[in-house]
């Protein structure tokens, strides 16, 4: 009896000593085998139980089992601690330098004009305008005649045009899409026409190719007030804040009345008399527009006595320059990679 108790006491003491000395999972495993393995100290004691007098066996058995359970618990606990220590060491030994550059390709770059074009289209889609596209090589009829710019009109002075030998031309504005779309869809109609346009001009502020965006709305009882509302909403969305607007009478052969829109200077809001962007005027000219001339509506196959509407055109390049703070127009079309990459955070 007492000899078993004493033996268990010794085993437990030995175990405690050895387990605390184990410093790796291998050593711990050896300890486990030494006590709980087939020839382990606890196993051997269990085998001895059969030789004990029957009345002492239950108590002795309980004591041995209890010791085995304690040993197992201690080993599991120790194993968990050793695993944690070992995996931490393993992880630390495979540390990487997170400041290394990423693998593979660096981010690309957006072109400011393409980005703006898509942004503006999204804004106008929200106002119910659908995209309409047209050819860049255009017929004289759609580019001039149908827009109320007959041969004899002085406005042709304003637009020096690229021609092809067969008499077709590179469209000088996106307005030809107006008539094409009216002929195809009739009224009411709300369209937006983005695209490249061309003029025989090249100097630091003019490029022979630039990007325009035209809007057209034809419906019943449309007023100049409706046009103002659309344009102000568009400008506020482009520049992400409401902007003061100023409307100036102007002249375009295809609208009557014709109006130009100035917005408050996005750089100085009219507060800097030396501002480079607005030249101290406080205003930026951003759109030409007007109520569609009845002749143009008629060319579009729509009855101007029932329907009227408005159209506008904006220069996307100029607005992109204003929005993104660019200074040179032509560099936009020269595929300047370092320049375009400098705008990555756009």
């Amino acid at each position: 009896m007492t000899s078993i108790q004493a033996e268990l006491g010794i085993i437990e003491r030995d175990f405690t000593e050895q387990v605390s000395a184990a410093s790796s999972s291998e050593e711990l495993q050896q300890v486990k085998v030494a006590f709980l393995g087939k020839k382990g100290a606890v196993t051997l004691i269990l085998k001895k139980l059969g030789s004990l007098p029957p009345e002492t066996r239950p108590a002795a058995g309980q004591a041995v089992n209890s010791l085995r359970d304690r040993i197992e618990a201690v080993i599991e606990d120790k194993r968990a601690r050793l695993d944690e220590i070992e995996s931490e060491a393993a992880e630390r030994s495979s540390m990487v330098d997170v400041t290394l550059p990423h693998r593979g390709r660096s981010g690309g770059g957006v072109h400011p004009v393409a980005q703006l074009t898509h942004d503006v289209i999204e804004i106008l889609a929200g106002l119910g305008f659908s995209v309409a596209l047209g050819p860049e090589i255009e017929e004289d009829f759609y580019n001039f005649e149908a827009l109320n710019i007959p041969q004899s009109h002085p406005a042709r002075d304003m637009q020096d045009t690229f021609y092809f030998p067969d008499g077709s031309l590179l469209r000088t504005h996106t307005s030809p899409v107006q008539v094409r779309s009216m002929l195809r869809h009739g009224a009411p109609i709300r369209i937006v026409c983005p695209g490249r346009v061309y003029r025989r001009d090249s100097d630091p502020t003019h490029s022979p190719m630039f990007n325009q965006l035209e809007g057209l709305l034809v419906d019943r009882d449309i007023s100049v007030a409706d046009m103002k509302g659309c344009l102000e909403t568009l400008m506020a969305a482009i520049f992400s804040r409401p902007l003061k607007a100023r409307y100036r009478a102007s002249y375009f052969p295809f609208t009557e009345p014709s109006i130009e829109l100035d917005i408050e200077c996005v750089e100085c809001s009219g507060k800097n008399p030396a501002c480079r962007i607005c030249k101290g005027t406080g205003w930026l000219e951003v759109a030409g527009m007007g109520m569609v001339h009845p002749n143009v509506i008629r060319y579009g196959g729509i009855d101007p006595s029932i329907y009227n509407g408005f159209a506008w055109g904006i220069g996307l390049d100029r607005i992109a320059m204003l929005k993104y703070g660019l200074t040179d127009l032509r560099i936009l079309f020269e595929g300047n990679v370092p320049y375009l990459l400098s705008g990555r955070s756009l």
Partner: peptide, 18 residues
């Protein structure tokens, strides 16, 4: 005044190409 023309209400279609 400035106002938004309200007679058409559907969302515009930006079209497949765009």
């Amino acid at each position: 005044p400035s106002r938004l023309p309200g007679s058409l209400h559907e969302h515009g279609d930006i079209g497949r190409t765009t």
